[in-house]
Design a protein around this nucleic acid. Sequence first.
DNA 1: AGGAATTGAGTTAGCGCTAACGTAGAAATA
DNA 2: TATTTCTACGTTAGCGCTAACTCAATTCCT
Lengths: 333, 333
Amino acid sequence: MIKRTTLADIAKAARVSMMTVSRAINNKPGLSDELRQHILDLAEEMGYRPNTFARGLATQQTTTIGLVVPDITNPFFAQIARGVEDAAFENQYNIFLVNTNEDDVREAAVLDTLWQKGIDGVIICSSRLTEEALEYQIQRFPAIVLVNRELKTSQSNLITINVNDHRSAQRVLQHFKDLGRKKIAYLGGPENSFSNQRRLEGYKAGLISADIPFNAQLLENAQPTTEGGRAAAAALLKRLPEVDAIFAFNDLVAVGAMQVCQEMGKRVPEDVAIIGVDDIPLATIIRPQLTTMHVALTHIGRLALRALLDIINGEGLPAAYQIEPELFIRDSA
Amino acid sequence: MIKRTTLADIAKAARVSMMTVSRAINNKPGLSDELRQHILDLAEEMGYRPNTFARGLATQQTTTIGLVVPDITNPFFAQIARGVEDAAFENQYNIFLVNTNEDDVREAAVLDTLWQKGIDGVIICSSRLTEEALEYQIQRFPAIVLVNRELKTSQSNLITINVNDHRSAQRVLQHFKDLGRKKIAYLGGPENSFSNQRRLEGYKAGLISADIPFNAQLLENAQPTTEGGRAAAAALLKRLPEVDAIFAFNDLVAVGAMQVCQEMGKRVPEDVAIIGVDDIPLATIIRPQLTTMHVALTHIGRLALRALLDIINGEGLPAAYQIEPELFIRDSA
DNA sequence: AGGAATTGAGTTAGCGCTAACGTAGAAATA
DNA sequence: TATTTCTACGTTAGCGCTAACTCAATTCCT
C-alpha cells in the first residue's frame, strides 16, 4: 500500500504552513490567488486526498450518514436505497448500509454502532422500534429521517416521509367499485406494521364510499412475501370462495394471491381482480401484469437524503412529507 | 443532541489517566482486575461509546470496509450485499455501500472517495474497470476482494471470488442433451462481461461433448434484464424459429425469453426449454418455475467479507475462490 | 540483603486536520 | 507622519484516541 500524501507533505513541499494549504484545499479566503493555484497544482501532482476521518474529528462533521433498512434484498428497500445513494453521491456524502433483519434488537444494536461512528445523520426505513426507543435514538443523533414510520411527538431534528396509505387504499377500492366488484378482500401485512393499519382504515373508508358493508371475513393477514400471499389467499378463498376482488398489502402478496387464484381455476382479472401496492419491477414481469399503486421509491430515497441534509444544514422545513401514490392500471384489475 | 462521553470524562471520574481507561476498555493487560471492573462499570454507567473515527485515526484501522456494486436494485447484488453485511455485523465491521451504475468512470470516482475515508478494504463486485485501472486501485487499498472478476496478475492483498461459469454452461448443455434438444441457443450478456465470455466458452465445450456442431446463428447478446431478454429472444426466434432450447445469461434474461416464447405460441418447456443462471427469487415466483443454475449468493457475500478480513489480518490464504453452481431443475426445462 | 524482573500505573507524542487567534507588512485614513 | 485597517499568512491548541516509553512499587531470585 502506498503512503498517503498529507497536508503536512504539501506544506513542506510548498514551503508554507499547513493552514495555508488547508485554506487552499478548502477554497477558503486568506491567501493570494497565485499561491492558492500553486498549492492546488502541487496537491494534484502529489495525489493528495484529504483524510475525511481526520477532518471529521476536527470539524465534528463526517459527510457520512447511516441508512437502516429491514432487508436490502427486498426490492422495495433496494429501490429506496438506490435513491438515497444516488443523491448522496451527488452531494459527496457516503452511506453506511445496515440491515436490521426486521428485528428490533438488531435495529437498536446497529444504531448503536452507527452512532459510534459519529455520523451526521440516519435514515431509518420501516423502523420496528417502539415509540420510546425511537425517541431515544432521535435525541442522540444530529439528524434523523424516518421513512415509512410516523411518530406522535415532533422533534426539530426529525423529518418523516410516509406514503399516503389511507388514500392509496381508498383509490384501490374506488377502482374495484368502478369495476363493479362487491366482495372485496384485504390481504393485509404484518399486524404491527403501521402502513398496514393505515391501509386497513383506508379500506374501510373506501367500503363506506362504495356503499358496501364491512365484513371481517374478508380480512386476512399475510407475511409480506409471495409465500405469505399464497398462504393468506388460500385461507381466504377456502373460507369465502366467492371473493371477486383482492387488495393486497404489497405486490409480493398480490403475486402470491394471483398464483393461488389461478391454481384454483379462477381467472384473473375476470373472476378475481387483484391490486397490489409499491409497483416493484416484478409487477410488470409477471403475467398478467399487475395493477398496482405505484410508489416512486427512488424518489423517496432521494427525498430522504435531501431532507436529512436540510436538517444537518439547519434549514427550516416541513416536519413530514406525504407521498401520493398513483394507480397504475395494468392487466390484473 | 446529547454530548458524547469521552475517555477523558471517564478518566476524570475514575481519577486515573486516560491510558488506564483505554486499557480497561480495550481489554488490554496492565491494570488490576478490580480497577478494570470499576472503570468498566463507570463507562457503562456513563454511557460511554468509543469514537471509532478517533480510534481509526490513531490506529490506522477503521473497522470499516467498502462494498462496490453496479446496482443494489439488481437482486443478484442485493443478495451478495446482504451476505456481506450479515458477516460484517457479526465481525463488528461496518460497510460503505456505493453503486457504480455500471459506469467505470463513476466506479473510479467512488473508489476514490472510499479511499479518502481510510477504510480497511473493499469488496468490488463485477468491476468494469480495465485491468490497469484495477491494478492501480489494488495497490492503494490495504485489502481487496474481487467478486465476479478475474485478474491476470496476482497480488498479496487481493482475493478473487468467481463462479465457475465454464462448468455452469457445460452442465446446462448436458441437461439439454439429456432432454434430447438439438437447437440450443445462448442468449449471452453484455459483450464486455467476463462471465459472459467464460459461459460462452463453456457453451461451446458443452456442444462438443453433446456432439452438436456450433452455429453462430444461435448466439445473441442481451442486456442483463428482462427487457434485454425479450429483445434478444425476439431477434433470435425471428431468425431461427426452430430453436428448442435456450441457455440464458441470467434469470432475468431467461424470464424475458420465456415471455416471448409464450407470446409466440410456443410452450415452455415442451417446445422450448429454458435455463437461466443465478436463481434469484423471481425464478420460483414466475410460472412455469425457472430451471436455473443456482448460485449461493449470500454465501458468496459472506465469503467475500471473510476473505477480506483474512487479508487484513494477514492470514495466508488462497488467492482465488471458485464457486460451483448447481443445477436446480424446476419446470422450464 | 541487594539487584533483576515484574506489575500497575502515568506521561508524552502524534494520527491528519481545522478553528481561533496572532502578526508582520502594505495600504488606507486622518 | 502617526494611526488604523486590511491582507496574507503563521502559530497554537485540540478533536478522541492509542503506541511507546517511563517510572515507582512490589515480587522474586541467588
